[in-house]
Amino acid sequence: MSNRFEAFLGLSVELTAFSRFDLLGTGLAERYLATLDKVVGVEITDTLLAAFVALPPAEGEARIKAVRTTILGNELLGDVARALIKLWYSGTWFELPLAWMERFGSRPADTTFVVSPDAYVEGLLWKAIGAHPAGAKAPGFGSWAFPPKIPALPELDSKA
């Protein structure tokens, strides 16, 4: 795997709190990196990845604070990072806010779209709540009568 893809994966683990195993298991990681490149351009994507790589090796609250100040609270990168979280969770790229476009220029590919039919099916939000995407990955007859099995948060290794 390239360093660029490694950085993208690490950033995605940081933002979603799903493990590399989970993210690679969707089969969509490469496609999502390509989506970023296509929609906001390679330059902004690289800036985002560089900001992640440069994060201090802190843990816990300090780490969260660093992500907030240097990525999610960054005027250029914040909206892009939030779009990436939503992409992983739903399979849909959501158009960037108007204010972002006005300041940094609109991009022709920046519309709201489902990346692919399987991107919807692999949305992480369903996994987060111990459910399944509506219309796919059915859990079986009668499974709904029992309490949900909500997966525990994994030990994450994004900083490794």
Binding site: E14, R68, L125
Partner: peptide, 29 residues
């Protein structure tokens, strides 16, 4: 829901990482 909840938690409540995962459970389940 649950897409509208995701948008709210990410865009308005500024949740990410483990807080977002817990937030989705708390909000949707």
């Amino acid at each position: 829901a649950p897409t509208s909840d995701l948008l709210e938690l990410v865009d308005d409540r500024n949740l990410h990482g483990a807080d977002l995962r817990r937030g989705m459970v708390d909000r949707v389940s």
